[in-house]
């Protein structure tokens, strides 16, 4: 079974986590978004083969949400880190 490195708890079996989907930042001004942009935010994902930024939730652990950068082809996770305002979206 795969291992995931929780930024708080360290390396754990993936069974302890719940996948939270591709990172999909919310438009800063939802009311200003036109239908196409809003619909894209709600329903469209990149789903790329290659490096994907995605959410994980440590449900059987610290209960924190974090981001992972994972290669969807090789399943190799290069980075896990907490969300912060300073990072580039």
């Amino acid at each position: 079974m795969l291992i995931l490195d929780c930024p708080n708890c360290g390396a754990r079996n993936t069974q302890e986590f719940r996948y939270g989907g591709e990172y999909n930042p919310r438009p800063a001004e939802p009311d200003a978004a036109d239908d196409a942009a809003w619909s894209s935010y709600l329903y469209m994902r990149h789903n790329r083969l290659g490096l994907q930024k995605e959410w994980w939730y440590h449900r059987a652990g610290c209960g924190l949400w974090f981001l992972a950068e994972r290669d969807t082809g090789s399943d190799k996770v290069s980075r896990t880190y907490f969300w912060s305002r300073e990072q580039i979206p």
Partner: peptide, 9 residues
């Protein structure tokens, strides 16, 4: 989980 996701982002 939902509330924490918004709170932590």
């Amino acid at each position: 989980e939902w509330i924490q996701w918004w709170a932590q982002s």
